[in-house]
Design a protein around this nucleic acid. Structure first.
Lengths: 350, 350
DNA sequence: ATGAAAGCGCTAACAG
DNA sequence: CTGTTAGCGCTTTCAT
């Protein structure tokens, strides 16, 4: 025996399919009495509406999509993603909307994934890992698929955008280090074509007035270690390093310690994203919490509004918070007081 | 103008819908010439088949589901989940199957989620966080929804199951510590109603011959810290602690260090799951890598086979590997040589 | 407040 | 090898 359909329920309740449908959707008034009969019948038959039939008829998937183009290895070590998804699901859980996730390996596969979403898999998508010039922005607009961009997109677009101020915490971190006497503060950034990496790097360059001690990593432990080695080999080595995420910061710390440097006495270290382990390290790692779950909730709520027909709009989320911990809590070593060359700001970061 | 349908493509190519459909599905032979015309027409019209229409007609969603019942905070700090998902997506990417994810907060919501999956959202599900007596096993069997259980389920079931030997690495770890002279080895377990926590705890109890130094945590840093404090306050404190995951191990290490104990000289510490940061800590943390991505691939392949009509079956994945690092690499402190009370094995763990 | 009926866009017999 | 024709199980006008 196969699963019951809406017709079975209608027959059992002595009404038509339309009545059953409306009893559930509330799209038109149904008397309390028949509504009760309908629900009772549905209950007795253990009827659950077919989501594919509903999607086809109503032209709405009751699902939103996320497509990620990432190396699985990087996905696996990402602290942002699961927390973000948790937030997405939190606001999804209240409505009966599902999340469709697709991880792809190539540009072609990514396009197909978005097309499939537009072709009925999902009613809208949230776009992560936003690039400064992101082809997906015009592409999605062309598909007519509701979308919200996560990150401070600077280009032209009519898509909704959930913005975060990544610059403020970087400025605060630099100020915090300056107060302790640091003058040679380095930054190990993430890939600079990401809007958030770029925003952090730009804030850093503006705050310190030079990009001499800026290095571009890729968020992996390996690059954190390598670039720390690079920086510490400098003639005037930095006395403080700001990393664009905690993974790189932790790898960098461990490298520095293996070279006999004490953290924070000889080298101050700060991360970004506030990994759940960071408060438990030795020394505890100064970081910036960015509340990915909250951004997930906000982005999802915004997307649901877009899907419901609202006009796209920008929303700013104030979700960063400094977590000052022991890894930056010592006076800068005496050598830090040496003068540094006059800052020269390059055009790109103005 | 709305998106083109299969009829538009058929008309443009001078064939019928059936031909278009079969040209894509390969469910029956189509001459190369017409196939080419069909593809050309589809291309020109930018036709993408509607997944909801396809799902309804073919009774197949081309999606698999995962429903998770978790506190978002725990999801966010879980190292297993993203890696597992990455593996799932790796094998999904090759076929054109999507992943539908639903995170729920209550038993009722969980049942509804599985029912929705069975009602057309997904063709099958993979079941995580398996409990020793898991209501979902009979429930899913009742729904007739293909499912694969991740973990060594010991009950009766006809569902596929992807098993891992969690006991062997625990035994090896205990042996490794004994070689270094440890006699008081503790274990901070995960919740014992999970099959994998239980398997690890049981292997530990069998290896050390006593459950006097067994504590039940909940995989969070907080519980790792609290239970470490508890163990270290014992009159005959343990000289080594095995934690059921790295998060608890790291929190425990940091607590021990804050109390003036050196790791590994005064206290040896090992984790489980091999978090990506663990090799970068000071000292690097001994752990057990469990290759969640591989298990994701295997479970997904198995599920796809079930969906395709194969008989359910058990598959064993040999995916654990000891990562011996500095946190366990020192001779046990002299005090470890004191005799310990005679082991008494409790019934439950036989 | 309820019924009747026409699709939504595709797949899969059934013919030829 | 290709065309015809029913549905898949809902939603949603249009009636009444």
């Amino acid at each position: 025996m196969s699963r019951p359909t809406i017709s079975d329920v209608a027959r059992a309740a002595g009404v038509t399919k339309a009545t059953v449908s409306h009893a559930y959707s509330g799209h038109r008034p149904i008397s309390a009495a028949t509504k009760a009969r309908v629900f009772a019948a549905a209950d007795a038959l253990r009827w659950v509406p077919s989501s594919s039939a509903r999607a086809l008829a109503a032209r709405r998937a009751n699902a939103i999509g996320v497509v990620l183009r990432r190396d699985p290895a990087i996905l696996a070590s990402d602290t942002f993603f699961p927390a973000f998804i948790a937030g997405v699901e939190q606001t999804l859980a209240e409505r009966e909307v599902a999340l469709v996730l697709q991880v792809v390996g190539s540009r072609g596969a990514e396009e197909r994934a978005y097309q499939a979403m537009a072709a009925g898999r999902a009613d809208g998508v949230v776009v992560l890992d936003l690039h400064r010039a992101d082809w997906r922005v015009p592409f999605l607009a062309g598909l007519g698929l509701p979308a919200v961009l996560l990150g401070a997109y600077e280009g032209e677009t009519r898509l909704s955008c959930v913005r975060t101020d990544d610059a403020a915490p970087v400025r605060d971190l630099v100020a915090h280090l300056r107060e302790r006497g640091h003058t040679r503060i380095a930054h190990v950034a993430g890939p600079l074509d990401y809007v958030h990496s770029y925003a952090r790097a730009r804030a850093y360059v503006r705050a310190v007035g030079s990009r001499a001690l800026l290095r571009e990593g890729d968020f992996t432990a390996g690059s954190g270690r390598a670039l720390t080695a690079d920086l510490l080999a400098l003639r005037d080595r930095p006395t403080a390093i700001l990393f664009a995420n905690d993974t790189m910061a932790i790898a960098g710390t461990s490298y520095a310690q293996s070279r006999g440097l004490r953290v924070p006495e000889d080298l101050a270290v700060a991360g970004f994203d506030d990994d759940h382990l960071s408060a438990h390290l030795s020394p505890p790692l100064t970081s910036v919490s960015t509340d990915p779950a909250r951004r997930g909730r906000v982005a999802t709520a915004r997307l649901l509004a877009d899907v419901a027909g609202d006009d796209p709009r920008d929303v700013a989320v104030d979700c960063t918070a400094l977590r000052l911990r022991a890894s930056t809590d010592a006076p800068a070593p005496a050598t830090a007081r040496r003068t540094t060359p006059a800052p020269e700001l390059e055009e790109e970061f103005r």
